[in-house]
Simulated assay, not measured.
Amino acid sequence: MQKIVLCAFALLALAAAVPQEQEQAYILKQESNVNPDGYNFEFETSDGISRQEQGTLKQISEDQQALEVQGTYKYTAPDGLTYVVTFIANEHGYQPQEHIEQPGQ
């Protein structure tokens, strides 16, 4: 589980390393909790990116467990629109649902 959290943070760091013409963003909020049964984290940055995620161990058969992850992330794209993706990932795969926030929401 900790590897998953570390991978998520590594992907975020990789995305943040992409050269941008904008001002440098800073973290407004960051919280995380990892325990034997699962994890959760959330963060928000000054450039409008936010993410919250929780993962829990789920019993899928008598002798098999799987990690079920649910979460949401939000960002403003270069086109000026704010995209919100809500997702669940479990033994059935990654299932995202995307919508665009209208200005002023």
Rank of each mutant, 00 (worst) to 15 (best):
Q54N: 14
E91C: 05
E101F: 02
Y39G: 00
E23Q: 14
E101H: 05
T72G: 03
F87E: 09
A25P: 14
A89C: 06
Q52K: 14
D47I: 02
I4V: 13
Y75R: 12
I49P: 10
Q20K: 13
S61P: 09
Q64F: 00
I88C: 07
V84C: 03
L28P: 09
Q2R: 08
E68R: 03
A77P: 06
I27L: 15
A15S: 14
E101L: 06
Q30I: 11
Q52W: 04
E91H: 05
L6R: 10
E44G: 07
V84H: 04
T82D: 04
N90Y: 00
V34Q: 08
T72I: 04
D63N: 15
Q105E: 11
L12K: 14
A8C: 13
P36W: 00
A13W: 08
Y39R: 02
I49W: 12
S32K: 04
E98I: 06
Q54H: 15
E42F: 04
L57Y: 05
A89K: 04
E101G: 04
Q64M: 04
Y26W: 15
N90L: 00
E68V: 03
Y75P: 09
Q70G: 07
H92W: 08
F87H: 09
E23A: 15
C7A: 13
G55S: 02
E21L: 13
L28K: 12
T72W: 01
F9Q: 15
E21S: 13
A8M: 15
Q70D: 10
Q24F: 12
A25Y: 09
Q20T: 15
Y26E: 14
Q22R: 08
K58V: 15
L12V: 12
F87N: 11
Q102A: 02
P36E: 06
T76W: 03
I88V: 12
L67I: 05
G55F: 00
F41A: 00
S32V: 02
L67M: 10
T72H: 03
D79Y: 00
L14M: 10
E68K: 01
D47E: 07
I4E: 09
D47T: 03
Y94M: 12
E44S: 07
E23Y: 10
L14T: 13
G38S: 01
Q54K: 13
Y26G: 14
